[in-house]
């Protein structure tokens, strides 16, 4: 009686990264995503077409683990913004990709000061 066709859905990690990047863009207080290798102290905001560069998605046994590298607006509560971001990212992954989530780590790489 079920009309479902059996099969599997595979969502590539890059797609998940895009999803996460876009969710981050809509999160208030996050002004940008940057590449994780900004160890030299220069965090460059990635253009919208390359958001996945700032998101590292790892597939673990218990689900996907996401590392997200962001730049936050000066004057916002970083802890709260990060908390919101984690909520938003988990929501996007669960809602759109239905993947089990092992964890989200937010790395605040820089604070953007107005002017």
């Amino acid at each position: 009686m079920s009309s479902a066709i059996s099969g599997n859905l595979h969502v590539a990690n890059d797609v998940l990264a895009d999803l996460v990047g876009n969710a981050a863009m809509e999160c208030y207080g996050v002004v940008g995503v940057c590449a994780p290798n900004a160890a030299d102290g220069i965090a460059k905001i990635l253009p919208a077409s390359r958001l996945r560069r700032g998101v590292v998605v790892n597939s673990l046994d218990e689900g996907v683990h996401v590392d997200l590298y962001i730049i936050v607006e000066y004057g916002t509560n970083i802890a709260t913004v990060s908390r919101n971001l984690i909520d938003q990212v988990s929501f996007a992954l669960k809602e759109y990709a239905r993947v089990p989530l092992a964890g989200v780590d937010v790395h605040v790489m820089d604070v953007k000061v107005r002017r």
Partner: peptide, 22 residues
């Protein structure tokens, strides 16, 4: 006002409110 909003910001709408007040 600015500090109170910053410290007390809760949730997305809270952070936006804090920036508006700032």
């Amino acid at each position: 006002i600015t500090t109170g909003a910053l410290m007390g910001a809760r949730g997305n709408s809270g952070v936006i409110t804090s920036q508006i007040l700032r």
